[in-house]
Amino acid sequence: MLEARLPQASILKKIVESVKDLVSQANFDCSDSGISFQAMDESNIALSSFLLRADGFDPYRCDRNLSLGIKFASLSKILKCAGNDDVVIIRYMDDADILSLVFESPNNERISEFDIKLLDIDSEYLSIPDQEFECKVKMSSSEFSRICRDLMTIGASVVIDATKEGVKFSATGDDGSGSVLLKQSGSIDNEGRGVVGTSVEMVEPVSLELSLKYLNNFTKAAPLSDSVAINMSNGIPVMFQFDVGDIGYIRYFLAPQIKD
């Protein structure tokens, strides 16, 4: 069986909102180390994954490895019935075909329970090579969202150039062009609610062209984290990571575009 109590429903709500437009259904893999997920969109262009470590739940109990097939649209609708500050208890009894979600209000005076039907999903796992990236950019997630939204008004793709100076986002379209340069700032304030600066850690400069349609989908994870890490190497898929507090992360992979 699985029983996992998450102190804040808002975390699960935000995670589901940040993948439901990319992936319609997927298996949630549960083990004694936590709950994880990995799935690609239908066109095999973007891969979404997340991990919530067992220590982010209190308590957490998972007796054996489970693969629970979830339809995101259903889960999203059910999670809308939870208050942001509700406690969520995720419960699965062995050999059942449902997953139970219990929402408890902060004062414990309102307890609601919803069951979601599980699907039998035959998913193929991609093995992602464990690699060192040539360039690691860390920047404000809301700034990243703003840049992706702004450049979408110009073109369908963005060129990300990372140098020691900083990171530049450029787009070109039929009606003109636009760019935003974020200079590297002295220090990143990830503590409290300070403004998150931009840092670039690099072995060599990287330049990649990426689809803004997908990037705009990834920015749906921005409410989970003040910052986003953009890990890049020339010619290979980029990894975007939004940390979920200190209990996990959500990652997106997207291959660069090439000119034929």
Partner: peptide
């Protein structure tokens, strides 16, 4: 012409 590469050409199925 711009071509979007699939992830399948980078990440293998085990």
């Amino acid at each position: 012409k711009i071509h979007q590469q699939s992830l399948l050409s980078f990440f293998g199925t085990p």
